[in-house]
């Protein structure tokens, strides 16, 4: 038993963190609310150059031949930045489905997916390929072969579309584990969002003064943020463990993913509330950046199965009454 990342994995994470620091500051997230694509622009191309988008593809197909254990840390960083891109759908969910697509691995095409059960695909209007549930696995469609219907997410930087395939033959591919990889990816991003909201708030309450002292010196504020930190502390290991279980084909991997997604969703929601409360009115303003992260956290907590849904799955495997009576 050794539960730690390697130096290489941490270095890969750090490189992505630096990149997103530069290429995806809050201004870029904010711009995605109103620009034509709802996307980041340069950050996506840089991630493609670094190999992040094809991390899970084999080297023979232009990827890095890495695993979800490597990718989970990177996805956490994309959450920290609230990167407005379908990176979970592309890098975690569909690259393994399209395993021989060098174009997807290299990021020459963008792939999104509507595989979380909602029928919605994020950023579908600028993706070249859209992956939908097929009869036996996943159906891979070109954008021209679907009709898109824009749906408003609470997170204006998450362009969502209901996807309606036009008639025609569909290439169906095996999609084993696609849902679990999506839920894991969302859980990882929720960890990053959680940490971002906490960092923003810790910095703010140390600066903001009332009654002649920093508001962060008041015990009520301290305890709100201690609770936020606790939630994060006891969500993170479950997410990393689920990444390992999926990578190594653990027979209980789906349960491990459900634990991770349930815990990460609830933890991020709690931190969001505490962060908003500890900011006071400034956090409630549209101009201040907190809401960019808060709304992404709300969206991701709800998607790929919310906390209760995942707990219900676990309840079934534990043989608990389903409560339908």
């Amino acid at each position: 038993m050794r539960f730690a990342f390697t130096d290489d994995q941490l270095a890969f994470r750090d490189a992505v963190r630096d990149l997103l620091d530069r290429e995806c500051p809050p201004a870029v997230v904010r711009d995605a609310w109103t620009n034509d694509t709802g996307r980041s622009g340069a950050a996506w191309a840089h991630l493609a150059d670094m190999g992040v988008l094809g991390a899970l593809a084999s080297e023979a197909h232009g990827g890095l031949g890495l695993t979800l254990v490597d990718l989970v840390l990177v996805l956490e960083e994309t959450g920290y930045a609230a990167l407005p891109e379908p990176i979970v759908e592309h890098a975690a969910v569909t690259v393994p489905i399209l395993e021989d697509s060098t174009a997807a691995a290299a990021g020459r095409v963008t792939v999104t997916a509507a595989l979380d059960g909602s029928g919605l695909a994020p950023w579908a209007d600028t993706a070249e390929l859209i992956v939908l549930p097929g009869e036996t696995g996943a159906a891979v469609l070109a954008r021209a072969d679907v009709a898109l219907d824009r749906r408003e997410s609470v997170d204006g930087a998450r362009r969502l579309f209901a996807v309606h395939p036009r008639a025609g033959p569909q290439a169906v591919r095996p999609a084993l584990g696609a849902f679990e990889r999506g839920a894991l990816g969302a859980a990882a991003q929720l960890l990053g969002l959680n940490e971002r909201m906490l960092d923003l708030t810790v910095a703010y309450v140390a600066e903001r003064r009332q009654f002649g002292v920093p508001v962060g010196s008041f015990q009520a504020v301290k305890h709100h943020l201690a609770d936020a930190r606790l939630g994060l502390e006891f969500a993170r290991p479950l997410v990393y463990r689920a990444a390992w279980s999926l990578t190594h084909g653990d027979p209980d991997a789906a349960v491990h993913v459900s634990m991770a997604k349930a815990q990460a969703s609830d933890a991020a929601r709690l931190t969001g509330r505490q962060a908003l409360q500890c900011h006071g009115a400034i956090g409630y303003s549209f101009e201040y950046d907190l809401h960019l992260y808060l709304k992404r956290a709300w969206a991701l907590a709800a998607t790929w199965g919310d906390a209760r849904w995942h707990r219900a799955q676990i309840g079934q495997t534990l043989g608990l009454p389903s409560g339908s009576a």
């Binding site: 962060g216 015990q219 301290k222 201690a226």
Partner: peptide
């Protein structure tokens, strides 16, 4: 303990 978490883990004043 929450005081300790806030002050020594999070670095609040």
């Amino acid at each position: 303990q929450r005081n300790v978490i806030a002050e020594r883990v999070l670095g609040l004043p």
